[in-house]
Design a protein around this nucleic acid. Structure first.
Length: 487
RNA sequence: GGCCCGGUGGUCAAGUGGUUAAGACACGGCCCUUUCAAGGCUGCGACACGGGUUCGACUCCCGUCCGGGUCACCA
């Protein structure tokens, strides 16, 4: 039995993209489902754009999501190194092999020449591919180019009249013709291999059995298969999953909003929610239950249930899923998550005291049911902090004009002042007693107090609001309202 | 432009020749409730189009249209 080995191979050219996260997730899911391993490989051959900072961000993001790998640049493994730039020697020997066999050749064309070729091909309505100019350079021609100081690239000699068949695990059979593929570069003029080349050698050397990646790579696959065959390597199984699109149905990009995993983390999304959402984008569980833990998803995961069509990223649904997870969370966890936001907005001091943490707990239990993402709590809490009460609108202000309002507020003030312990329970019974004594319907008691305390007609249960404000501030806000009402 | 992949409600998405074409998000209504939210119930809403094949097509074939990807010394 062949060992099951999957990999996620990002380029460290920026923070982990949401689409990359989904590729990583699907690889992870399949690896776990099949009892195989997940390998993390860093494809850092683009010297211009690659950075260690991005690499770290990618690892952090994956870890945050709960996507763990068995081998990688940080943990090592038997098939390392796991950064392509540390594997240059490995590629070199295969390049020599291809060169010796005449399956690859040096090309001295300049960028300008290539650009011109492309334009010409395009103008003739053809495929803008390399025309094979340097395919059969004589030693003299070569020498001339060298003398001019030209640095050659290595191109792969694409065989003629060949059908390349991909048996894709999600797309089925896809056929390409070799005539549609021009001789492509496998080693750049600086000696660094290109993606299509390095990926083949690495996947082979790392014994990757299944390559699960985004659909944008489907058209690259025939090139890679040609390379596998030229090198005498075994071709792995391929599975190309569809892309994630923005609202306007084009590929997800910055203008669609947050595209990187850290941005979602910073907005206050829970990792389980992001994972759950991503899994549902292009895959569907068998049952009707959509809120699933990673374990449940692994159990149910299968490539047969992966959709072929691209999926539009629906933030509304992510928000909903996130809200579901927030509601399922313990208040303690929510407090941990919320504290940084609360500190940042100045609602808590840098090192929150036990009292402040207790307050944060009141806040989070009050808002747990109504948050879609943790960060929103800073917005929601605004009305419950400070001396000033701002009425959300005229309608709210009008509540205080009610005839019975002064009486209600005064009664409430006295009773609250007399309360020894302000807990949800004591406040609750206190409020009920006001209803009874004054013989007033709920709305004539609760609404004026609510508006006087928060300026809002809507919000968490009144007794929770009072807990968050605290006895003293609540009293002062009532007094202010009372002053306004009595004149 | 050539090649490749795709096209079920606004969005995600079941479905694999015969179904009243699931479900979820969003949206509307009702219930619950002192408010909102959450929750429960309910409603609106779809097989891109045109030809075939077949007794019968969302499902199979062809064409058209639409969307996306790719054709880099980026991955």
């Amino acid at each position: 039995m062949e060992e099951i080995r999957l990999r996620f191979a990002p380029s460290p050219t920026g923070p982990l993209h949401i689409g990359g996260a989904r590729s990583a997730l699907f690889n992870f899911l399949l690896a776990r489902k099949l009892g195989g391993k997940l390998i993390l490989r860093i494809e850092d051959t683009d010297l211009e754009r690659s950075s260690r900072e991005s690499e770290n961000n990618i690892l952090d993001s994956l870890q945050w999501l709960g996507i763990n790998w068995d081998e990688g640049p940080d943990v090592g493994g038997a098939y390392g190194p796991y950064r392509q730039m540390e594997r240059l020697d490995l590629y070199r020997q295969y390049t020599q092999q291809l060169l010796d066999k005449g399956m690859a050749y040096y090309c001295y064309c300049t960028e300008e020449e290539l650009e011109q070729q492309r334009q010409e091909a395009l103008a003739q309505g053809g495929n803008p591919m390399y025309n094979g100019k340097c395919r059969d350079l004589t030693p003299e021609e070569k020498q001339k180019c060298e003398a001019e100081g030209r640095k050659p690239v290595v191109r792969f000699r694409v065989p003629e009249n060949k059908e390349i068949v991909i048996n894709d695990l999600v797309r089925g059979q896809v056929v390409f013709k070799s005539e549609e593929i021009g001789d492509f570069v496998i080693v750049k003029s600086d000696g660094i291999p290109t993606y299509n080349y390095a990926v083949v050698i690495d996947d082979t050397l790392m014994k990757i059995s299944h390559v699960v990646r985004a659909e944008e790579h489907l058209s690259n696959t025939p090139r890679q298969i040609l390379l596998y065959e030229a090198l005498g390597f075994k071709v792995p199984q391929f599975a190309h999953i569809s892309l994630i699109l923005g609202k306007d149905r084009s590929k997800m990009s910055k203008r669609h909003g947050a595209t990187s995993v850290v941005q979602y983390k910073e907005e206050g999304y829970l990792p389980e929610a992001v994972v759950n959402f991503l899994a549902l984008l292009g895959w569907s569980p068998e049952g009707e239950k959509e809120i699933l833990s990673l374990e449940e998803i692994i159990q149910q995961f299968s490539l047969d249930r992966v959709a072929k069509n691209p999926a539009v990223f629906d933030l509304e649904k992510l928000l909903w899923i996130n809200g579901m997870y927030i509601r399922e969370s313990s208040v303690e966890r929510l407090v941990e998550l919320a504290v940084p936001y609360l500190i940042k907005e100045g609602y808590l001091s840098e090192n929150p005291s036990p009292e402040e943490r207790e307050w944060a707990k009141l806040v989070m239990s009050a808002f747990q049911e109504r948050l879609s993402k943790i960060k929103d709590v800073t917005e929601q809490i605004k009305t419950l902090v400070g001396e000033e009460v701002h009425f959300e609108n005229e309608e709210a202000a009008a509540v205080l004009e009610q005839e019975t309002c002064p009486l209600v507020l005064r009664t409430f003030k006295d009773k609250l002042a007399a309360l020894d312990e302000v807990t949800p329970e004591t406040v609750k019974t206190m409020l009920k007693s006001i209803m009874k004594e004054l013989k007033l319907k709920g709305q004539f008691v609760y609404m004026p107090i609510r508006v006087a305390l928060s300026g809002q007609q809507h919000g968490p249960d009144l007794f929770l609001i009072i807990g968050i404000l605290g006895k003293d501030l609540a009293l002062r806000r009532i007094e202010r309202a009372l002053k306004k009402v009595s004149c």
